[in-house]
């Protein structure tokens, strides 16, 4: 069993850290993952409804974006032939626009249509009686067609169309982060701070600071090993996401179809959707391209994990402060 890329369990770790007082923790299943909301509350019951509002928003994102729910906007788009279009919700449009921006700015390393090259995807909701049913779509009839430029997005009319047959849009690489951003809007609108949101241990949003701390303590761990922290840092008012080829062997280079070789990538960004998408893109991008991306995007930082003679080899990109290495 692979360890979590954020070390044993980041959320548990936060609770175990010497806080002034414990946080209330709420859990919810969505997108075949567990989502957590950590809030500073006098009792778990006191803020339960606040967490419920966040989880409701996350469920709405799943209903709009799921690759596996036949009525989702994404399924409706994927059912189209070339030249056809459907009207989508503002949520879907927002996520698609942000996905397209990351696609453009990473030179296509983040490619939401690369799913067409994959088979045997696990539904976001593959078990149990979840409100949102999961249905695995048929594989495309012919070879998959890849290219975000084959999706036509009309932002004024909210109409999205396909320009080629066989394109399969899959926002799994950005959807959980996007769900955290949407959930966070509820908390921000109610002036809730601090809070910490976790989307399936792969993307997190840290706002304000845990009680008595400067922010939210995060660890970077070797994804191949159990409980092997490599570095730690404090996250505050930012999102952090991680991707690894150890637990996600299906990260493919959209240009070549080859699997990514890098062991792991961590991305810090102002918003969770972008962090989520970038952590995947950074697995595939060259060092030069990542450095250029971080330089052009204030607030974006990266850590890359490769192997050198069997040992982990960590490198950082962007303006890091307070990153502590656990060992040389």
């Amino acid at each position: 069993m692979m360890s979590e890329i954020f070390s044993i369990e980041q959320v548990q770790r936060i609770n175990n850290t010497a806080l002034e007082h414990p946080l209330a923790r709420y859990r919810h299943r969505a997108m075949a993952s567990v989502f957590d909301v950590l809030l500073d509350a006098p009792s778990p019951a006191a803020m339960q409804e606040m967490a419920a509002l966040v989880f409701h928003e996350i469920d709405q994102v799943e209903r709009a974006l799921s690759y596996f729910i036949p009525t989702s906007d994404i399924s409706r788009i994927n059912a189209l032939c070339a030249g056809e279009a459907v009207k989508v919700s503002p949520l879907t449009l927002d996520c698609l626009s942000r996905a397209r921006t990351v696609w453009q700015e990473t030179g296509g390393a983040f490619e939401p249509t690369v799913g067409a090259l994959l088979t045997g995807r696990k539904p976001w909701d593959a078990e149990g009686d979840e409100p949102a049913g999961g249905v695995a779509p048929d594989e495309p009839d012919g070879p998959g067609v890849v290219g975000m430029d084959l999706i036509s997005i009309d932002e004024d009319s909210l109409i999205v169309g396909l320009l080629a047959d066989g394109v399969r849009l899959d926002l799994g690489g950005i959807g959980k982060g996007f769900a955290l951003d949407i959930g966070a809007e509820v908390l921000r609108s109610m002036d809730v701070s601090p809070f910490f949101l976790n989307g399936g241990e792969s993307v997190m949003l840290a706002v304000g600071a845990a009680p008595g701390l400067e922010g939210w303590p995060m660890t970077v761990s070797d994804p191949r090993l159990e409980n092997e922290p490599l570095a730690s840092f404090i996250a505050r008012d930012c999102a952090v996401a991680a991707s690894s080829t150890a637990d996600r062997p299906h990260v493919l280079n959209p240009e070549t179809g080859d699997p990514a070789r890098r062991l792991g990538a961590w991305a810090v960004a102002p918003r969770a959707a972008e962090a989520d998408a970038l952590s995947t893109a950074f697995l595939l991008m060259s060092d030069e391209a990542i450095a250029a991306y971080c330089a052009a995007h204030p607030g974006v930082r990266a850590i890359l994990l490769d192997q050198q003679n069997g040992d982990p080899w960590l490198r950082t990109f962007g303006a890091w402060e307070g990153l502590h290495w656990k060992k040389s």
Binding site: A85, V86, K87, I159
Partner: peptide
Amino acid sequence: GLALAPAILRAQ
């Protein structure tokens, strides 16, 4: 599925 061009026209 709406044909692309007419759909955009229709929305306008």
